[in-house]
Design a protein around this nucleic acid. Structure first.
Lengths: 222, 222
DNA sequence: AAAGCTTAAATTGTCGACAAAATAGCGAAT
DNA sequence: ATTCGCTATTTTGTCGACAATTTAAGCTTT
């Protein structure tokens, strides 16, 4: 079970899809470095596809904010900056706060029970010292709450839009920090608020949680 | 001076840009009806461009959430539903609330003064009965605060992503409601909070303002 | 030696044609 | 008459080639 379980729902039907997924993976995981140029001809020979599908893939990457393109010039992988990280987490705080708020109303009792179970599983694996579950568990937790909001725009913006960029920052900063146990407590309080059907509190706790995460990541980049 | 002054910064350099802008305008303003199919060949003959540029334009429209595309099937203009409107305004409340919060910190004194001036101009034109400034004035107000956040992600998501869809709903619902004066008061309070450098209050007032707007729009669609 | 212009190479933008998939239409069987 | 299956048509996906723009190189000039 890898850390890309959240991608399971995406299935590549067309050749352009495959190229898009591959390119996104290479960018997010650092195989293609931030700031590097994406040559259409070069990539088309590398992946053995036409330039048209590479173009389409690059366009989609631009929509994810993973590459920047200038007309008649070309596309480059985005550069990671401390300011960019802060801006990204401000948006994330806003959207995931709203997601938690909505989840407190829209998640079913069963979904909440599943979330609790995930949390306890996560807790046991972390306690037994297997830290490599850490990021996957965290992503899964947040993802379920986003889905629990039942808001398709929210889901699309976070999942198709920002999460890959966030992960790219995480990878470049050398994975997660050491604040596993505190993050676990924060997650638990958020679930409690959702289970108590308290939208205000759920939003506030989620926003604080993300603020803490940002403060934890920020010093690593500068 | 039309209601598309906010688009002034966008300039079409490539043929695909023009097609994208044209298509977006036709969809947002209702020339192409919600739910209708977008045939690539048909559009390519209609706009006298190649199918490739139409494809690229449609892909961009999909990123704006204005069309939905299924592989090997085609693209359709999104359908407008009451649930979709609510979801859209939930996201908008979240993002613009954050924009107001950030604007309270990041807007310069000069920008705030300009905003105040815009508001008084708006007030005078409304008082003199020229209601056709209404929507443009409202959009301009919100747009300046979004820019004032100085957060590029926020700006991109709202401006390139959601505002056209919001406008599409507004057009389909027969333009704005009659709550001009109350909205003006709300705008004024928001500017006051920003001028007082009070992020918490600015966010809260903006969120309430958008909630009211949504409640005002909602009964028209069902 | 440095700056500016001219020309050559490389890259992106656009186009028409072919391949693959899905839809529509027709006919046969129940 | 309806359903199932087959064929034909339409539509999307992919490809290679050409056009337009940008970038790089070389030359001239000061």
């Amino acid at each position: 079970m890898g850390d890309d379980m959240i991608l399971a729902v995406e299935q590549a039907v067309t050749s352009s899809d495959k190229t898009f997924f591959q390119l996104r993976k290479d960018i997010v995981e650092g195989t293609i470095l931030p700031g590097s140029k994406l040559s259409e001809t070069e990539l088309s020979t590398k992946y053995s596809v036409s330039r048209a599908v590479v173009r389409e893939a690059i366009n989609r990457l631009e929509s994810c904010h993973l590459v920047e393109r200038k007309a008649n010039v070309g596309a480059r992988v985005v550069s990671l900056t401390p300011e960019g990280l802060v801006e990204l987490y401000q948006v994330r705080e806003s959207l995931e706060g709203m997601a938690a708020r909505l989840a407190a109303t829209n998640m079913s009792d069963e979904e909440i029970a599943d979330l609790r179970e995930l949390l306890s599983t996560h807790f046991n694996t972390v306690k037994s010292g297997e830290t490599y579950y850490q990021e996957a568990g965290d992503v899964d937790f947040h993802y379920r709450i986003i889905l629990g909001s039942k808001n398709s725009h929210l889901i699309a913006m976070l999942y198709n839009g920002l999460y890959h960029l966030i992960r790219m920052y995480r990878v470049q900063l050398g994975m997660a920090g050491p604040r596993v146990t505190t993050a676990f407590d924060e997650h638990k309080h958020i679930v409690d608020a959702i289970a108590n059907r308290d939208p205000e509190l759920a939003e506030m706790l989620m926003r604080r949680h993300i603020q803490y995460t940002c403060r934890n990541l920020k010093p690593k980049l500068s």
